[in-house]
Nucleic acid binder design. Structure first.
Lengths: 273, 273
DNA sequence: ACCAGCCGTCCGGCATCTCGGACGTGTCGG
DNA sequence: CCGACACGTCCGAGATGCCGGACGGCTGGT
């Protein structure tokens, strides 16, 4: 469509695939562009940080590319990084543990670990649930930036799933305020009859919630008091997974410093902090 | 400079920072663009995979962004991922181990591990050496795609560093052919008097060499036969580090499948395969 | 020292893209 | 059922960026 933009993307890809720094004439030759056009596009891309121009007149890909795809990276790594923590939490709690990520206006179930002792629930990995009626959804919603949360709340319907579902916008916002202070969200039989959940957010490098963990169980076992008892371990699990995404954070837009090893084995026991 | 490209970048950043899928009008509103322009830019970016457009008319960042910054990612993660393997190799070989990456037309020393028993060499991390006279450089050169290697060979000078340095383009290309078959490169006192080295490549997701490992030592200990004895462990180290970059490989341009856990502890002893 | 070749930049003619506006369509609400 | 709104698309006027060409400045070779 827009031929100018296509050329700019050509330049970007040319630099990315070469992997090396290229001089402007080299870029021009590889992309089949004239020199003036190449200089204009390179300086435009450089002004935004998409390419980094050395003073020696050579250009390489800029770190802006990385910071833009941070979110994609987190999403791609989420299941692998979260798995062991989910299993530990499940073993500790003896209840089903879910991992959910925000997708559009719903929460997408990304992973699930079921306790051996708990009755098996049907598989819901890959399915979606509303944001306003689940602990996963509320945990994510609560920690979104105000603007994002507002835009999302505008678009969701607050449908009644059970008698306990919060269907009033004001009451939901009040609940989210409590979640922010408390650190975790409670689904008090608001999404499914007979099921009570606790959820805690997983925060990415920029403090943005990229997902959430939850513990779910039948009301007969998941009493209100047990929910609060499980909360500290749940929060600890959320923090642990969040930390695993910390190693991307030092990559800002230019300086690259050392980072903690994300693969370092942490075998400390779960429990009260 | 190029106002059209700047707008396209605005759209890209808007989608990246929102993290969520946005409808075209939302993008238009956030970026302050008119609807027709927004549609054109979005479809242009979508045609190249920079944004992924759902059939529901919503757009999110495409995986092309990730595949473009793969190289940057690898480079950022290289030191952390390679460290433990370098240390094991150093302990096994009892000689100095280097990690080097291609930067422009030279090899950049990224990390170094020195044996306790070996005499300390001056610190060279951060410095550069020629490609044609080092085992690191030749290991990288040998496994580059033909076109890249040719372009690089055009630009380097084949300066004589020692009497053994290969200063003839034809002989160098023949040596690189041997390196490709054998799997590792030998610096037979070609870069520094009295120092002999073996180097093996570290291959990234696409089979492109992103760095190399080497074992260096004084000729009195690093005889030609010892070089060959150390080669299997060196190659194994290169393979191990290469594998750590494998988890990015499943991320092609759309399908995202499960990957092997990069953090899995591998404690098998080094040695002959 | 000279010359040659390349690099980076600047200028006119032309093609292309953008803007503003308007149209047909689908959905939601009354 | 109809009206209203928003979405996605299409069109002319105008502006903007692109191509081809040409100019200083530099490096490297002779």
């Amino acid at each position: 469509m827009s031929r100018t933009v296509l050329k700019a993307l050509d330049v970007l890809e040319c630099l990315a695939f070469s992997g090396q720094s290229l001089s402007a004439p080299e870029v021009a030759e590889r992309c089949g562009l004239t020199r003036p056009t190449t200089y204009r596009l390179l300086s435009t891309l450089a002004a935004r940080g998409y390419v980094a121009g050395g003073q020696d007149g050579r250009f390489r890909l800029g770190n802006k590319m990385l910071s833009l795809s941070k979110r994609l990276l987190e999403y791609a790594q989420l299941p692998q990084l979260a798995r062991p923590e989910l299993e530990r939490l499940c073993q500790f709690a003896g209840e089903t543990v879910h991992l959910g990520a925000l997708e559009d206006i719903e929460v997408l179930y990304v992973d699930k670990v079921e306790s051996l002792t708990a009755a098996r629930m049907y598989s819901i990995v890959g399915s979606r649930s509303p944001l306003h009626s689940t602990s996963l959804g509320k945990a994510i919603l609560a920690f979104l930036p105000d603007s994002e949360r507002t835009m999302l709340l505008e678009r969701i319907s607050l449908a009644q799933r059970t008698p306990n579902t919060i269907t009033d916008r004001g009451r939901l916002e009040e609940d989210l305020r409590v979640v922010r202070e408390r650190g975790y969200a409670i689904d008090d039989v608001e999404n499914e009859e007979g099921i009570r959940c606790v959820g805690a957010p997983i925060l990415g490098n920029a403090g943005m919630p990229i997902a959430a963990v939850s513990i779910s169980g039948p009301v007969v076992r998941m009493t209100a008091s047990r929910v609060d008892d499980l909360a500290p371990a749940l929060l600890e699990t959320g923090r642990r997974i969040s930390q695993k995404f910390g190693y991307i954070s030092p990559i800002r837009d230019e300086p690259a410093t050392a980072a903690s090893d994300p693969a370092a084995p942490t075998t400390a026991p779960l429990g009260e902090p």
